[in-house]
Nucleic acid binder design. Structure first.
Lengths: 252, 252
DNA sequence: GATATCAGAATGTCCGGACAAAGTAACGCT
DNA sequence: AGCGTTACTTTGTCCGGACATTCTGATATC
């Protein structure tokens, strides 16, 4: 038989603030996440069983379970009935968030800039109207932008946004991302369904993106819904494959 | 002010089998999901409040909440404190699963076939070894396959699998997908981190995939971990962009 | 008439307890 | 020594209740 590896185990102690508006289960989850991320609790560690741990922290088992469940959902812990709860190797990236390219670049210090090529209110083309679940010919914002990072062109973006959600103007679109503006207008982005493909650049695209003719491009078509099921944005973007790729994390 | 749209509401009744090994909350969740998917409960419907509904179904509120939570996580319901729970427009696709191309094609009846181009045990190239968290030069399975759908070439796939997890041979790889074999060997695929990009085909790739020279290809690099954090597979694949795209759903 | 306050309704959090199911390991029998 | 059985540990499911927080709309006030 194989020798079972020693499984480190720590008697866990977490300070809780019962006067805080932050829920107790979330305080526990956050603190655990921090310790796992920093390596303070190394991968492979087995947590004490729920009953004991709840007792030690002065919490009820349901509350502690809620904290653990939160981390299991995020892929940081694994539970097995009859066995216990174990810390999984921390993964750098979270499951893809519903963020815009602008936010992504901004976060990693890539100095995003936007050049608004056109901004108009016009009838949505039929295929777009269909995806937006609007009757053909309904007027929507039509936005075409060029996104740059570190002053290098990165992507051509065409978006369609229904009227009435947010007031758009060139200045604001240049200063921040579309999603920031939507969120700022009280829209809660909830679900997006997207399709990622590839094709060669057209002559115009190659010119705009400073790529040679026939250069490979990544295409991304996305429909975004808010928390009440409305379509809030339809996007059709092309990225320079030489400078961009999609990173994502899947959980099973 | 805008006229608030009428919100349909249904007194809900779900038959429960308390002798079944299927948990009650899951019975409720499944039945609700079915009715939402079939349109029996249309989008926008507001559910009765949790207390009343739990009473009607003969369940406790925590149990009912567990069912609702499951569906909220899957993006089919939306909850708002002080307001209620509402049905979101059903989305065709679930958040991306950790499935292999073979399974995907099989499910939609695309008649997947695999031609094993080479299968060997060899030292992992350094970059691969690094991604697999193995010391340089460790021997692993090296697999090269051509995936066909409806007898048309679709993708070139190169995989690296550590030894000791599963015994691979050409026959079994031809008959099913790699992930099926791994799962069959008791490996629980848990988390994958992947990167999707694009580039032009090399001459050899173009030939194998029946594409013209310089055709755009989608590239996908993936590292898959199991439930105890081991790397179980590293894949580096190229797809014909003319015949394939990645579909995925994000939730925020 | 506009604003502030208040009551009602709904979900969010938390507790304590009970039994079931699954996996592990020790035990006892052959 | 090998094998099946049993006991134990641990998570999974379920119940009932209590109070907090947030949102909506009606009421009262200025």
């Amino acid at each position: 038989m194989t020798v079972t590896q020693p499984v480190p185990q720590t008697p866990l102690s977490i300070p809780l603030d019962r006067t805080s508006p932050v829920p107790l289960y979330f305080q526990v989850a956050q603190e655990l996440e921090r310790r796992i991320m920093t390596g303070e609790i190394p991968a492979g560690t087995r947590l004490e069983n729920e009953v004991v741990l709840a007792g030690r922290l002065g919490l009820s088992r349901p509350t502690l379970r809620q904290a653990i469940e939160y981390l299991v959902d995020r892929g940081m812990l694994v539970r097995k009935r009859g066995v216990g709860t174990q810390v999984v190797r921390p993964r750098v990236r979270r499951p893809v968030e519903l963020s815009s390219l602008y936010d992504d670049l901004d976060r990693v210090g890539e100095q995003p800039r936007t050049r608004v090529l056109s901004l108009a209110v016009a009838a949505a083309p039929d295929p777009v109207a269909a995806r937006m679940e609007l009757s053909p010919g309904t007027e929507v914002y039509v936005i075409e932008r060029l996104r740059l990072a570190r002053d290098e062109p990165l992507a051509l973006m065409r978006n369609h946004v229904p009227l009435g959600l947010v007031d758009l103007d060139e200045e604001r679109l240049s200063a921040s991302g579309l999603y920031q503006l939507l969120r700022g207008a009280g829209v809660t982005l909830k679900i997006a369904s997207q399709s990622i493909g590839a094709r060669n650049a057209t002559a115009a695209e190659a010119r705009a993106l400073d790529e040679p003719r026939g250069a490979p491009l990544l295409t991304m078509d996305r429909v975004v819904y808010d928390d009440v099921g409305r379509v809030v944005e339809v996007g059709s973007h092309v990225y320079r494959a030489s400078r961009y790729s999609f990173e994502l994390t899947l959980t099973g």
